[in-house]
């Protein structure tokens, strides 16, 4: 029994010293999430413009520019 003690201590010591070798980095890395909801239709695809992207853009551009009242009154 007595003869085994040094071996047991040596094995425990070796195990303790080598424990660090198996350590994995624990820094959290951020990953961008991926949208998990339902797909959306684009604004010009359904309803008023029926897929006519050009007409939709023109309608919106007219409204955006009409916000400049200097252009409207001059």
């Amino acid at each position: 029994m007595k003869t085994r003690i040094p071996y047991v201590i040596a094995a425990a010591l070796a195990g303790a010293l080598l424990a660090g070798c198996g350590e994995q980095p624990q820094v959290a890395s951020y990953k961008d999430g991926k949208y998990s909801g339902k797909p959306d239709t684009r604004p010009w695809e359904a309803g008023t413009f029926k897929g006519d992207k050009g007409a939709w853009e023109q309608a919106l551009r007219t409204r955006i520019r009409s916000q400049n009242e200097y252009k409207r009154v001059e």
């Binding site: 999430g33 991926k34 949208y35 998990s36 909801g37 339902k38 959306d40 684009r42 604004p43």
Partner: peptide
């Protein structure tokens, strides 16, 4: 992950999730 951004840069979300 219920947020998404449209081609026009509008941030929207799916309320179901």
């Amino acid at each position: 992950n219920v947020f998404y951004k449209t081609e026009e840069g509008i941030v929207l979300h799916d309320k179901d999730g």
